[in-house]
């Protein structure tokens, strides 16, 4: 379970994220969508302990990420958008290191299963510096899922993955939630969010514009009433973001007048 209460983040005078509330329950894949600079990565970084909230709390797996960091961090796996790994370790060494941090007993069988799943078994003894971007991304996914944490937090999961691996990753995320685990992902790819997310929040300039299932978003955004055909996430997303921009423009004009 992920619980965000009145979370906001300021960098000096700039408010990157205004107070937001979110709850993601076990068995659910939750998608966080938004244009560039919307505050998705800031929110994710607060969830995984890379950014301290300016206000509010972030709890993962029942633990406050900043008050009980070790317990909270044992409860989630994190897949960042840029897979910076220790270049001079081999793939297997990195995974054994992760297993050690999570105190996993006898991890070798699981490590081999995962390497085989992503077709990396032949590369497991090679230094990570020789891996392609996609291979590093696969290794990062394995590192996050190896300890089977109750919560998975994923930032742009498909970056650098080939179509086959992207399909595998989509299925993995959906299957992980089906096992009763919690999955939160941010993505620019609307088809990905539409395909795997049970619920979605649209974030723009630090505000949540809408939140709910695809049907609920459709109702909230009024795409049907306004005569927009179809109910794809893409249409809903653009409508919400454009409405927000229009409102902001109106407010600016009013203030100028």
């Amino acid at each position: 379970m992920i619980e965000i209460r009145d979370f906001s983040k300021r960098y000096g005078r700039v408010e990157a994220v205004s107070p937001i509330n979110l709850k993601v329950v076990p068995g659910e894949v939750f998608g966080l969508l938004g244009p560039n600079g919307a505050g998705k990565t800031t929110t994710i970084r607060a969830m995984v302990g890379l950014t301290r909230p300016s206000t509010g709390t972030v709890r993962v797996g029942g633990f406050d990420v900043w008050r009980e960091p070790v317990k909270a961090k044992a409860a989630f796996g994190y897949i960042p958008d840029r897979p910076y790994l220790y270049a001079k370790l081999t793939g297997r060494e990195l995974l054994r290191f992760i297993a050690g941090l999570h105190k996993l007993e006898h991890p070798n069988t699981e490590i081999e299963r995962w390497l085989e799943f992503f077709g990396l078994e032949d590369f497991g003894n090679e230094l990570i510096e020789t891996y392609s971007h996609g291979m590093k991304q696969k290794l990062t996914i394995i590192a996050a899922m190896l300890p089977e944490p109750p919560v998975l937090i994923v930032d742009e999961p498909m970056v650098g993955l080939d179509p086959r691996a992207a399909k595998q990753a989509r299925e993995l995320l959906a299957g992980y939630a089906a096992k009763g685990k919690t999955v939160l992902l941010t993505t620019h790819s609307l088809p990905v969010a539409e395909a795997v997310a049970h619920r979605i929040a649209v974030l723009d300039r630090g505000h949540i514009l809408a939140e709910g299932t695809l049907e609920e978003l459709q109702q909230q955004s009024g795409t049907e009433r306004s005569g927009v055909e179809g109910n794809t996430l893409e249409r809903i997303f653009f409508k919400l973001v454009e409405e927000e921009e229009l409102e902001r423009e109106n407010a600016r004009e009013k203030a100028a007048a």
């Binding site: 290191f97 050690g100 941090l101 070798n108 078994e121 032949d122 003894n125 090679e126 020789t130």
Partner: peptide, 29 residues
């Protein structure tokens, strides 16, 4: 890259330091 599919496991040193928990694994790394 010289591919070697043999699944290499932890060395004796790694297992020894692993007994000291996460810090031990960090020292080996």
């Amino acid at each position: 890259v010289r591919l070697d599919p043999t699944p290499r496991v932890a060395s004796g040193t790694e297992n020894f330091f692993g007994k000291f928990g996460a810090s031990g694994h960090l020292i080996v790394k």
